[in-house]
Amino acid sequence: MSEFFNVTLNKDVVLDDTATNSSTGWTGKHILDEIIAHRVTKFEGLDDVNVANKQDKQVVVYSADEKKFTTVDLQNIGDAAGLSLKQISKMGIVGSVSAPYEVDIPINTVDFKVPRVNVLQFQQGDQNVIKTLNSFSNSESSDFQPDDMIAFDNTVHLKTSYDYQMKDEGSIGSNNEEYFCEIDKSIFKEIDDIEESVDGVSEILTVTAVPPDRLLIASGDKDLSYVQNIDYFKLTGTGSNLRVVISVDGGTTWKTFNTDHWEDISLTMNDVKTKGIDMSIFNAINSTYWNLLNANKKIRFAYLLSMNSISDTESIDNLDLQYDGQGKWIQAKEDMYDVVYVSNTQLQVLVKFSGDIKINY
C-alpha cells in the first residue's frame, strides 16, 4: 500500500477530503476527475454507438436497422422511433352494439408491434348556461376606464354627491373661523344642494349635483372562446337614458344595432347618445345577430350614463350572458368499440355508438 494510506481490508476504503492533505496526495475529487479524463472508452467511442451528429437537447435511441445507438432531436422522437400517432375523423356515423359502424384503416406492419388504438367521441357542450359577466361591484371598477364621476356599489351609476375639504383661512372676531374651498360649477349640469359638515377636525362641504353625461368604457375584452352559441345578452337596470355600444376587435372600432343589422359608430358622447342601443332593444337582440358578431370570440361594452335631474334613477345592475358551451372530445370506453387487425395492411375499428368520432392509431 501507499505510504499515504492506512487501510483495513475488511472495511470500505473512504477518502475523506477534509482529512487528507492535497500536498501529500490526491484528493477524492482529483482522483475522480482523473478517472473520467483518462477513461479508456468513452460512450461515443463504442462500436455500437453512432453519435457523429450529436447536438444539444437530444436523446439516445437504439436503431435495429443500423444495430447502433444514435441521437435524435427530442421533438422528433415520435417520428424517429416510429411512435407518432395518426388520426382520422368521421362525422355523423351511425353505429350500435348489434350493427357497429365499420372503419377500415390502411396500415403497414410486419410484426404487429403497433401503438394502442383509441377512439374519441364528441360530446355536446352544456346548453342554456346563464353567466353573469358583470355585477358592477366595487371590485369590478378596475375592469373599466377610471372615472371619478361614476360609482360602483353592486350597481353602476353616476355619482351625485361630491365632498370638498375646506381650508381654514383664519379667525373672524373672537369666536368664528373662516373656511374656504373652490367649486367649479361648470363641471356639473346643475347643483341641487350644498351642505356643510365636520369630519373629525376637517370642515367638509358636500355638493349634491347632476354630473354631465359619462361614457363607462370597458378596459378589456370578455373572452367568449368557451361559447359555441350565444342565446342572448341581457342588461338589468333602471332608467331610460342608458345607451350601449359594442366592440369585437379590442376597442379599435365600435358597433351599434339598427333595426336588423350592426353598424359602425364612433365612440363619442354625442354619437353614443343619439345612435347607441337602448336597454330594451339590447335585451331584444336575438341569437342570430349576436352570433354574427362573435367571429373573434371576444367582446367588450361601453355604456352611456346620463341623468336629466337629481331625481332620475339611472343605473345598471347586471350584464348576463346565456350561451351553449363548446363541445369536447372524450375518450370512448373500450367496450364501445372493437379493434381488429384484419391483416398486416388493414386495421378495422368497429364503433358501437353514433355521433362524431376521431380515431388515433
Rank of each mutant, 00 (worst) to 15 (best):
V110F: 11
S96Y: 03
I105T: 10
V119K: 03
A80D: 07
S98F: 06
G92P: 14
N118V: 05
V103M: 02
S98Y: 03
D73S: 06
D73W: 01
S96E: 12
Y101E: 06
P106M: 04
K86V: 09
V117I: 06
G82D: 06
L74D: 01
P100V: 13
K86S: 06
K90W: 05
P115I: 13
Q75D: 07
L74W: 13
N76H: 01
T109G: 03
T71I: 11
A81P: 00
E102T: 12
V103N: 07
Q87V: 07
G92L: 08
V114K: 10
S84T: 15
M91K: 05
L74S: 02
M91Q: 02
I107E: 05
L74K: 10
Y101I: 11
Q87H: 04
S96R: 11
K113V: 15
D79H: 00
V97Y: 09
V103Q: 05
G92F: 10
S84D: 04
E102F: 06
K86R: 07
R116M: 13
L83H: 10
D73N: 08
F112C: 03
N118Q: 11
P115D: 07
I88H: 00
T71M: 12
Q75E: 10
S96G: 10
V72W: 00
N108P: 03
M91E: 07
P115N: 13
D79S: 08
Q75F: 12
S89R: 12
T109W: 13
E102N: 09
K90D: 01
G78K: 09
L74P: 00
V72L: 03
D104K: 11
V103Y: 01
M91C: 01
V110E: 15
L74V: 15
I88K: 08
G92M: 07
S96N: 11
L83W: 06
G95Q: 08
I93L: 13
N118D: 14
G82S: 04
A81M: 10
K86Q: 08
Q75G: 00
S96L: 11
K113Y: 15
V94G: 00
Q75M: 11
G82Q: 09
K86E: 08
K113M: 09
N76G: 02
G95M: 05
I107T: 09
S89Q: 04
M91T: 11
F112L: 14
N76M: 01
G92V: 12
G92S: 07
N118A: 05
L74Y: 15
S84Y: 01
K86D: 11
V119R: 01
R116S: 14
F112Y: 07
M91S: 12
V117D: 02
K86H: 06
K86P: 00
E102L: 15
M91V: 08
V110N: 09
